[in-house]
């Protein structure tokens, strides 16, 4: 039982949960969050791939990739949330 096995399983589970949420969730905010869950799950898998037994240091390239992924994900989330705000306003005006 090493951390890579435990957290590899966690990553797969989180990715799966996120996928289910992204396809099945009923409200928009939750779908965006579900996609973010997917990205965290993928981050887990990349980091597990980079992990080495403690005396040796982990592989820095996947680490850099995950950081890039986090930044890109926050950009995507910002755009998605702005779209949600716009949609809310439009719908609210329609009902008015």
């Amino acid at each position: 039982m090493t951390p890579d096995l435990i957290y590899g399983a966690t990553g797969i589970a989180v990715f799966g949960i996120g996928l289910v949420g992204a396809l099945c969730a009923q409200d928009r905010l939750r779908r965006v969050l579900a996609l973010k869950l997917c990205s965290v799950g993928a981050g887990f898998l990349l980091l597990v791939g980079a992990w080495r037994e403690p005396p040796s240091t982990p592989d820095p390239v996947p680490h850099a990739l995950v950081i890039t992924g986090i930044v890109v994900m926050v950009s995507a989330t910002a755009v998605a949330l702005a779209l949600i705000r716009r949609l809310q306003t439009l719908e609210a005006e329609d009902e008015h």
Binding site: L47, V48, A50, W51, P54, T57, P58, H63, I67, I70
Partner: peptide, 8 residues
């Protein structure tokens, strides 16, 4: 952090 990735 447990996966020794403090930057991430």
């Amino acid at each position: 952090v447990r996966l020794s990735a403090p930057d991430v």
